[in-house]
Amino acid sequence: MKNASSIGGVREISQHGPKADIEVQNVSKRFGSDADGLLALSNINLCVPTGAFATIIGQSGCGKTTLLRMIAGLEPPTYGVVKVGGQVVQGTSWERGMVFQEPRLFPWFTVARNVRLGMPDRGHNQEAVTGLLRLVGLEDFGTAFPRELSGGMAQRVALARALAGSPRVLLLDEPLGALDAVTRMRMQQELLKIWQDRQLTIVAVTHDLDEAILLSTQIVVLSERPGRIKKVIPVDLPYPRNRLTGEFNVFRQELMGMLL
């Protein structure tokens, strides 16, 4: 917790429940063999405290997805360790939920069945399934098949499925990327509410600078490939945030300066 990235204007973090600090320590990731492999991430050190909302930004191909996958336990680091709640991550766990860049719903099952499969008991509690669908605004689509959904709706089902496992840590890979501007703004508010209500620790990838400032307690800026941490910017504005204020603009300008 006494890591440089967690100092500063982190919002007041609720410390109930088990710890879910995410610590990424000296992590590098190489795809392929050592000699002619591709170095995707180089020496990443990052700490996301329990209850924080971190966003990762950086150019396409800089390793954002790879970093999330390593936290999820879908991919082992080549060097270094990832810890969540003090435990070294080895494989996936109910403690960590993930929404991918694509919805990845099972096309052969209905929306409700997809969400049910996200629950450890596979959804014996029908109420809970309905509640999750209502949460993402799709209570009327339980019996629909994924092919009948728009891209944004499918992504919302994927979010409901990830929340169904009651994770402490939620990993989001550009979850709002496919949405139109209005739906996107609404989903940003929903996401903040879910984060606060469920006291989640969130790591999200986004390409949208405003979204990063609007949502997160800290912004992690990655350099071009191989991805290194360029800077971790704490965002100490109170919620709800307003894009039109001068303070917001200060962050915007700092980020623009870093990325251009």
Partner: peptide
């Protein structure tokens, strides 16, 4: 398969 992994 990755979804199956995440959903245990």
């Amino acid at each position: 398969w990755e979804v199956a992994q995440l959903l245990q």
